[in-house]
Simulated scan of single mutants.
Amino acid sequence: MRAVRCNEHGLPATLAIETLPDLHPEAGELVIDVKAASVNFPDVLIIQNKYQFKPPLPFTPGAEFAGVVRAVGAGVAGFAPGMRVAAYTAHGAFAEQARVNAADVIALPDNLDFSAAAAFMLAYGTSYHALVDRGALQPGDTLLVLGAAGGVGLAAIQIGKLVGARVIAAASSVEKLAFCREHGADEVIDYAHEDLRERIKTLTGGNGPDVIFDPVGGAYAEPAFRSIGWRGRYLVVGFANGEIPKLPLNLALLKGASVVGVFWGHHMKHEHALAEQEFAALIEWIKTGKLRPVITKRYTLDQTPQALDDMMNRRVTGKIVIEM
Results as ranks from 00 to 15, higher is better:
Ala71Asp: 02
Gly67Ile: 01
Ser172Met: 05
Glu243Pro: 00
Asn207Ile: 05
Met121Arg: 04
Ile228Arg: 02
Gly67Phe: 08
Thr14Trp: 06
Thr19Trp: 00
Asn250Arg: 13
Asp210Trp: 01
Lys176Asn: 08
Gly28Trp: 02
Glu278Phe: 02
Leu11Gly: 03
Gly164Phe: 07
Gly184Leu: 15
Ser127Gln: 05
Ile106Phe: 09
Gln138Lys: 15
Thr288Val: 15
Leu45Ala: 09
Ala107Pro: 08
Ala185Gln: 08
Ala281Arg: 04
Gln303Asp: 14
Trp285Gln: 13
Gly208Cys: 07
Gly151Arg: 05
Tyr51Leu: 12
His24Tyr: 13
His270Thr: 13
Ala90Asp: 00
Asp141Cys: 02
Ala273His: 06
Pro305Asp: 07
Pro55Met: 15
Val211Lys: 00
Thr204Ser: 11
Gly28Arg: 09
Ala219Gln: 14
Leu274Trp: 09
Val76Ala: 14
Gly67Arg: 03
Val100Ser: 04
Gly208Trp: 10
Leu144Asp: 12
Gly205Leu: 14
Gly73Ile: 06
Ser227Leu: 09
Val237Cys: 15
Met311Phe: 01
Asn7Arg: 13
Leu291Ile: 07
Ile228Asn: 07
Gly238Thr: 09
Ala117Thr: 14
Thr14Tyr: 09
Leu30Arg: 01
Pro58Trp: 12
Val68Trp: 03
Arg197Trp: 05
Pro25Tyr: 11
Gly153Ser: 10
Lys269Asn: 11
Ile228Phe: 06
Ala252Cys: 10
Ala86Met: 07
Ala171Thr: 10
Glu26Thr: 04
Arg2Asn: 11
Gly318Asn: 05
Gly135Ala: 09
Pro245Gly: 10
Ile200Val: 11
Arg70Lys: 08
Thr317Glu: 03
Tyr128His: 12
Glu222Pro: 03
Val236Asn: 13
His24Thr: 15
Cys180Gln: 12
Lys35Ile: 09
Leu20Arg: 10
Asp214Arg: 00
Leu57His: 08
His266Asn: 14
Asn250Ser: 11
Lys50Tyr: 00
Ala192His: 01
Leu203Gly: 08
Ala95Phe: 12
Gly153His: 05
Glu271Arg: 11
Ala103Gln: 03
Leu308Val: 11
Ala130Arg: 00
Pro305Thr: 07
Ile189Ala: 01
Gly82Pro: 04
Ala103Cys: 07
His9Val: 14
Glu271Gly: 06
Gly147Leu: 04
Asp214Leu: 03
Ala66Tyr: 04
Leu146Ala: 12
